[in-house]
Amino acid sequence: MRVCRTRHELAAALDEHPGTRALVMTMGALHDGHAQLLKAGREAADVLVASVYVNPLQFGPNEDFDAYPRPVDADLTLLEREGTDIAFLPTDDQMYPREPLVRIDPGPIATILEGKTRPGHFAGVLQVVHKVFNLVRPDMTFFGQKDAQQLALVRTMVEDLNMGIDVRPVPIKRDDDGLALSSRNSYLSADERSQALAISGALRAGREAADAGATATEVLGTARSAIAEADGVVLDYLVLVNPDTFEELAPGVTGRGLLAAAAWVGTTRLIDNMEVELR
């Protein structure tokens, strides 16, 4: 595996690796969920490129940028284990040699749900995604469905800007008890981790209601009731939305929907989602 820390080193490594190119972008603190992305990229392309970069532009002033875990050696071990050809670990100076003057406007989807709770977050996400796309020039890229709103925005940017990259979703990886894997799970105490199961439990209750023929209103009500009874969980939002536009679904709608939730467990904010089929 070639480890690159500068744009020049990355360009040289890419020249040495011909063929179709898959990109997996991460912020490090890698786990089995990231491994699923890497496996998908390894199977689909000749060259697998992974980036590890904690992007300061997507963190708000009161968020955990300084505390965000950065286990670099462990991350490199996982990348190599999954067959990564090129690992790009840039510094801030490499990614942002000066304050960016040209910015990506993520549009109205970025002002709701995660974007409402974290103003400016998605502008920072798309800024760094666009930059890494330009540096790596991938044929395809893999994003996890856990960050469903991010996935929708990346797809929209690629389509609207005619970037010609195949954006491929990878299903959420969960522990055996149902908790969605996340780098932030490491912040949870044992009791908090147990409490956090209420999030996936509420989504699962909503999906089961949909499978039983419940309306959109009933599905959402079932999920909200389930999480309202949970100890130690402070709900930020729980909504039923269109998976592509993230607009909330009307009461009588049928077809695909996405139950999306964010909640605080102790001092840790977790997100999760689950697809439903409304009949």
Rank of each mutant, 00 (worst) to 15 (best):
M1T: 05
T254D: 06
G178Y: 10
G60T: 04
L151D: 01
D66W: 10
A50H: 05
D191G: 05
V49Y: 06
A205H: 05
A216C: 11
R103M: 08
A45Y: 04
A74H: 11
A180G: 12
E192W: 04
G83D: 01
K131R: 15
A262I: 07
D231R: 15
D93R: 01
R137K: 12
T26Q: 14
D175H: 15
E192G: 07
Y237G: 03
D85F: 09
G115L: 11
F133C: 03
G33D: 02
V125Y: 08
H8D: 14
G201H: 15
T156Y: 11
I104E: 01
Q127V: 01
V276K: 01
T217Q: 13
V47T: 15
G107A: 12
V49A: 14
D92L: 12
R256I: 00
P100R: 06
A198P: 04
D15R: 15
A228M: 05
A262V: 08
E247P: 00
L126F: 12
V136K: 02
D64T: 07
F143Q: 02
E248T: 12
G206A: 05
P251H: 13
P56T: 11
G107P: 03
L181W: 05
R184V: 12
L78N: 03
P251N: 14
A67Y: 07
P119W: 12
E275D: 08
T91S: 14
A250R: 03
V276L: 07
D166E: 14
A22P: 01
K173F: 09
I165A: 09
S225I: 10
L23F: 10
A123S: 02
I165F: 07
R42F: 10
R137N: 10
R207S: 08
